Simulated assay, not measured.
Amino acid sequence: MSGVRQARGAASRLSGRRAEVLAACWLLAKGYRILGFRLRTPQAEIDLLALRGKVLAVVEVKRRTSLEVALETVSFDQRERLRRAGAAIVAGRPRLAGVSIRLDLMALAPGRLPRHIPDAWKGS
């Protein structure tokens, strides 16, 4: 792998981590409790797992040029894997019994405030 390609990959990973931290801070300010960062499950990797009241948000964080691009970036198959991953986490944690699981998007674009979209893919 070329040095340029390695540097680009490292910069991309760092940008993604920064986006996740910023998204977590934004959710904390909105009253969510962050239960996990980059949770690896057999079904999928969850960027953020956040709880507010009886709603468990499985949050996908995307840093893109626009909200529309961020929404389109998450495929139907990925959304299904994230839903299954959220259900598996709830099944394995008795303290989460009774919560409803929701798939949210945190979209970040250069020069703009983060945008939290609860239930971003409702009905799909």
Rank of each mutant, 00 (worst) to 15 (best):
R63C: 02
E60G: 08
M1I: 09
L71R: 04
P118C: 12
D104G: 06
V4K: 05
L35W: 08
L35Y: 05
D77A: 12
A24I: 12
T65Q: 06
L39T: 00
K62R: 08
V99C: 03
L35H: 10
F76T: 00
A10I: 15
V55R: 03
G98T: 05
R17N: 10
E45L: 07
K54E: 09
A109R: 06
L113Y: 03
A24H: 11
K30Y: 12
V74F: 10
K62I: 01
R38C: 06
S66D: 09
M1T: 07
Y32M: 15
G92N: 13
R93N: 14
E45K: 02
A44N: 08
A23M: 13
R79W: 14
R64S: 00
K54I: 00
V61T: 05
L51H: 05
S12Q: 11
T73W: 08
A10T: 14
A29Y: 07
A57G: 08
L51C: 02
S66G: 07
R81G: 06
R84C: 04
A70M: 01
R112F: 05
Q43P: 01
L113G: 07
T41W: 09
K54M: 01
C25M: 15
V99K: 02
G31R: 10
A7M: 11
G3D: 14
P94W: 03
A23V: 11
L82F: 05
P110T: 10
G111F: 02
P118M: 09
L113F: 07
L108E: 07
R63E: 04
R102C: 02
I101R: 04
K54R: 13
L22Q: 14
